[in-house]
C-alpha cells in the first residue's frame, strides 16, 4: 500500500514546494519509489524546483482523457526513483474543480504504483486543498515561526479537523438527529466543538466511536525557515497543546533552518539537498525524513497488531 503525504500550509510561500521536493528526493535516495504530485492548481511551480523546464503531459492529459491512467504522466526526474506529475496546463478555472473531477483525481492518486506519494498542495483552507489533504491520515502542515503564519496554521488545522469530523459523521451510522443537525442547511456556522456536543447530546453511544475515528488522523507539523533566536521548543509546545485540545493526533516533525542557499538553488535550478547535502538545513530535512519513515513503521506495526 502506498502512503500519501499531502503537504499544505495556512499561509503561502512558507516552503511547501521546497519541502515536498526535498523529502521526495531523500525518500528516493533511500531506495523508495516516490512520486511528487503538484496539486497547487493554478499556481503550480514544483517542476521548477526539480529543474524540469518544459513539462509536457500532466494532470491535464488525465482530466481531458488523453491518457487513461494517471501513472502514464509520471515523468522521471534527475533523481532516480523520483517521479513527478505536473498540473501545469490545468487552466485557472480548474482551480475550482468540479466534485466529480476531484474524486477522479483522488481515486487515481490512491492507485498510483509508488511507495510514497507526496502531494504539493496550495495554501489556505479552500475546498480543493482540504479535500486533497483529507485523502490521507498523514497530512503534513508547514508553518514558519511568525505569529501570522502560526495563526493561519491553526486556522488550517481547525478547518481540516472540521472537515474530518463532518466526513466521519457523513460516512458512518449516526442517528438522524445528529445528521440532520450537522448537515441542516441553515447551520453552516457549526464549529468542531459544537458538532461534538451535538453527538454527545443526541447519540451519546457513539461518542467513543467518534473520538477513535478522529484519533486516526495524524497531523504532522514542520516549522520552516527557523532562525537561531527562536524558541527551540516552539514545535513541541504546539504539538502538546494540539494533542490536548483536539481529539486527533499531532506530531511535530522538526525545524528546518533558514538558509540563503535555498532560494539561490531554486534560481539555479538545483535540488538543494543534492547540491548542499551537509548544511544544517539538509541535516534537518534528513532527520524529518527519518522521523516520517519511523512513524510509518510504527503505524503499520500497530495496525498489524490490532
Amino acid at each position: 500500500m502506498p502512503v500519501i503525504y499531502p503537504i499544505s500550509s495556512g499561509k503561502g510561500g512558507v516552503g511547501k514546494s521546497f519541502i515536498a521536493a526535498s523529502i521526495g528526493t531523500l525518500f528516493a535516495k533511500l531506495g523508495k519509489k516516490v512520486v511528487l504530485v503538484d496539486l497547487d492548481l493554478g499556481a503550480s511551480n514544483l517542476h521548477t524546483l526539480l529543474g524540469i523546464k518544459n513539462p509536457k503531459n500532466g494532470l491535464n492529459s488525465f482530466l481531458n482523457q488523453t491518457v487513461k491512467k494517471l501513472d502514464r504522466v509520471a515523468v522521471p526526474t534527475i533523481v532516480s526513483n523520483l517521479f513527478f506529475i505536473n498540473s501545469l496546463y490545468c487552466s485557472m478555472e480548474i482551480a475550482n474543480l468540479y466534485h466529480t473531477q476531484k474524486l477522479k483525481i483522488i481515486r487515481a492518486i490512491t492507485k498510483l504504483p509508488f511507495d510514497y506519494i507526496i502531494l504539493d498542495l496550495g495554501a489556505g483552507s479552500n475546498f480543493n486543498t482540504l479535500d486533497f489533504f483529507s485523502t490521507s491520515q498523514e497530512g503534513i502542515i508547514i508553518c514558519t515561526p511568525e505569529p501570522t503564519s502560526i495563526e493561519n496554521c491553526f486556522r488550517f488545522i481547525k478547518a481540516a479537523y472540521l472537515r474530518k469530523l463532518k466526513q466521519i459523521i457523513k460516512r458512518h451510522a449516526f442517528n438522524s438527529a445528529v445528521k440532520n443537525t450537522v448537515f441542516s442547511p441553515n447551520k453552516t456556522k457549526m464549529e468542531a466543538p459544537d458538532i461534538i456536543d451535538v453527538v454527545l447530546k443526541h447519540d451519546p453511544d457513539r461518542e467513543n466511536f467518534l473520538k477513535n475515528k478522529l484519533s486516526e488522523f495524524k497531523f504532522k507539523l514542520i516549522i520552516n525557515q527557523f532562525r537561531k533566536n527562536i524558541d527551540e521548543t516552539l514545535g513541541d509546545k504546539i504539538e502538546t497543546v494540539c494533542n490536548r485540545h483536539f481529539y486527533s493526533n499531532f506530531q511535530f516533525l522538526g525545524n528546518i533552518s533558514y538558509d540563503e542557499r535555498i532560494p539561490e538553488s531554486v534560481v539555479s535550478k538545483n535540488i538543494y539537498v543534492n547540491k548542499y547535502p551537509y548544511t544544517t538545513s539538509s541535516a534537518d530535512l534528513k532527520k524529518i525524513t527519518e522521523k516520517i519513515i519511523k512513524s510509518r513503521r510504527l503505524t503499520s506495526q500497530a495496525s498489524k497488531v490490532s
Binding site: E151, F154, K237, I238, V241, H245
Partner: peptide, 14 residues
C-alpha cells in the same frame, strides 16, 4: 504558562 500565556507564540490565535 509558557504554552498558554497571552504572549505565547505556540498558541497564537488558537
Amino acid at each position: 504558562l509558557a504554552i498558554y500565556n497571552d504572549d505565547s507564540l505556540a498558541t497564537y490565535a488558537l
